[in-house]
Nucleic acid binder design. Structure first.
Length: 492
RNA sequence: GGUCCUGUGGCCGAGUGGCUAGGCAGUGGUCUGCAAAACCAUCUACAGCAGUUCGAAUCUGCUCGGGACCUCCA
């Protein structure tokens, strides 16, 4: 198995160190990633996180691990704020749109799936919902209660952070000190239910007007935001599992609370390796639903936006993201995207060129070493930009072989061919952009005729006519390119 | 205000105490009737100041700039 001969190192947000990854069970990995709260369309920033972890998932699979990848859908419990009258985001949207909450959930879950599919993300193995795990959440609250880390107040249940901090370290993930947190807390209305402003809701009492509520030992209510991830990750991956991922902005308080809840409920540290994907910025600022600084995937794929001016293929956007490390901030711009598009095409050209290579004699470079660099890059905390740079190194070599300037042996060719495709398609999750073979119908026939006539003109060295046809077609957004074996055309 | 991250060539982005990242753009070529595409070659760097060191873009301190979190966000 590949994972036995590759030492994978992962930067652990919990320790701040790059650590050698060892799974709890040999050959198996439990991976949990915080999914979206489905009350609006996913934007590109959201997508970056999910694409980052898609690559993590893909590389683990490539290494031969059997991975259980769980990514939740939060469809209840995510409050507008932590004040007493904080409204559930789904419920609020439902109220505003005059729809059933589950209609909201369905609409945006479908959008989420569609978009991630366009980015060629693999689906997780389990995609549990918060509403589907109310019982598990209630049970977890009871465990936390039994262990003395929760208290009830007016039908709501809160996590006792200060009590927890006596025997544990609240803030260990986000590197915060509890005193700083207390002094930095803003006073929100309606926090009198809580013993301390740091305490967070495990269960919220539902007012009569609330539309999403469930029975519990504490009356009708709904679960707190952080709880569903703890309940579902524990259920499907165990009390302690291998990797938990999510966006950097979830580190505090969401993930901090997860650690506290999990530890309080089971006595075990819930997660060995915490991974945080960094933000995608637009105009130098984080993409964010609340500030409106966002770009929706559809706006990007259609070119219907003010930022870029034209459409880009989802795979090009994915490649653009691969050229930055997941833990670095990445800024989105038309210029950067254009550069990626051309680079992507170059990489695809090279993979095409593999078909035209005839292996012969000895290899003029050390192919094993080159492939070793592919692995080394990914083993070093999933360093996709380094991997990409080595793929370009391979690109240069492949074109050299094709041009007869370099040579490759047949065994090396098989290895390189396999590795190039494995890393490009399986690990990075790229794919050839297949022109939408939309049925052009009569246009195909017409173009065939036109190009035939132009070819005739070229053979007669009637360049004026040949060029005029090409120019006129270009005005009609049809680009003609002359290759060695005839002309090709494509509609822009 | 508190905590933390970051500042690389025209643009995007890796990285290590001494050894070419890479992509795009630019420049020069190859190919082509021309054009486009493709391919080859190649230039520009490490925010500022001080320190540690034989040697620092890489370590330390300070200054200036950018960002994240501290309230919901991937």
């Amino acid at each position: 198995m590949l994972y036995k001969e590759n030492e994978l190192k992962i930067n652990n947000s919990l320790t701040g160190e790059k650590e050698v990854f060892e799974s709890i069970l040999d050959g198996f990995v439990g991976l949990y990633v915080c999914g979206p709260t489905v009350y609006s369309n996913v934007h590109l920033g959201n997508c970056r996180t999910f694409i980052s972890f898609d690559v993590v998932y893909r590389y683990l699979l490539h290494l031969g691990y059997k991975v259980r990848y769980v990514r939740n859908i939060t469809d209840a419990g995510h409050l507008e704020n932590d004040a007493e009258e904080g409204e559930d985001k789904i419920a609020k949207k439902a109220r505003l749109e005059q729809l059933e909450p589950m209609e909201i959930v369905q609409q945006y879950t479908l959008d989420f799936h569609k978009v991630l599919d366009q980015f060629n993300n693999l689906p997780p193995n389990i995609e549990p919902t918060a509403t589907g795990h109310i019982i598990e959440q209630i049970e977890m609250i009871m465990d936390i209660f039994d262990n003395g880390f929760a208290y009830e107040s007016n039908g709501s249940v809160y996590f006792d952070v200060e009590k927890y901090n006596e025997s544990n370290n609240y803030g260990e993930l986000s590197k915060r000190k509890i005193e700083d947190l207390v002094s930095g807390t803003r006073t929100l209305d309606g926090q009198d239910e809580k013993k301390s402003p740091l305490d967070f809701a495990l269960w919220k009492n539902a007012k009569p007007e609330h539309i999403m509520k469930w029975p519990s030992p504490w009356g009708l209510g709904f679960p707190g935001w952080h709880l569903e991830c703890s309940a579902m990750s524990t259920k499907y991956l165990g009390e302690t599992f291998d990797i938990h991922g999510g966006g950097m902005d979830l580190k505090f308080p969401h993930h901090e609370c997860e650690i506290a809840q999990g530890t309080a409920a089971t006595g075990e540290k819930p997660v060995n390796h915490w991974m945080h994907a960094n933000m995608l910025t637009l105009n130098g600022k984080k993409m964010s639903k609340s500030t409106g600084n966002t770009l929706l995937p559809d706006e990007l794929f259609s070119g219907n936006n003010d930022v870029l001016g034209r459409a880009y293929d989802p795979i090009v956007v994915r490649f653009f993201m691969m050229q930055a490390h997941y833990a670095s901030v990445l800024d989105f711009s038309a210029e950067a995207l254009n550069a990626s598009e051309k680079g992507f095409n170059r990489l695809m050209e090279a993979i095409q060129s593999l078909k035209e290579i005839t292996p012969k004699g000895d290899s003029s470079i050390d192919v094993d070493a080159l492939i070793g660099k592919f692995y080394a890059a990914m083993n070093d905390d999933f360093n996709t930009p380094i991997l990409v740079s080595h793929l370009f190194e391979a690109t240069k070599y492949i074109q050299g072989v094709k041009a007869g300037k370099e040579t490759i042996s047949s065994t090396d060719f098989e290895k390189l061919d396999k590795a190039m495709k494995a890393f490009t398609f399986d690990v990075l999750g790229l794919k050839e952009i297949t022109e939408e073979k939309q049925d052009n119908g009569s246009l195909d026939t017409v173009m065939e005729l036109v190009l035939q006539m132009r070819q005739q003109a070229r053979e007669n060295k009637d360049w004026t006519t040949a060029d005029a046809i090409r120019d006129k077609l270009k005005e009609a957004n049809i680009v003609v390119k002359d290759d060695k074996d005839g002309a090709k055309w494509e509609a822009q």
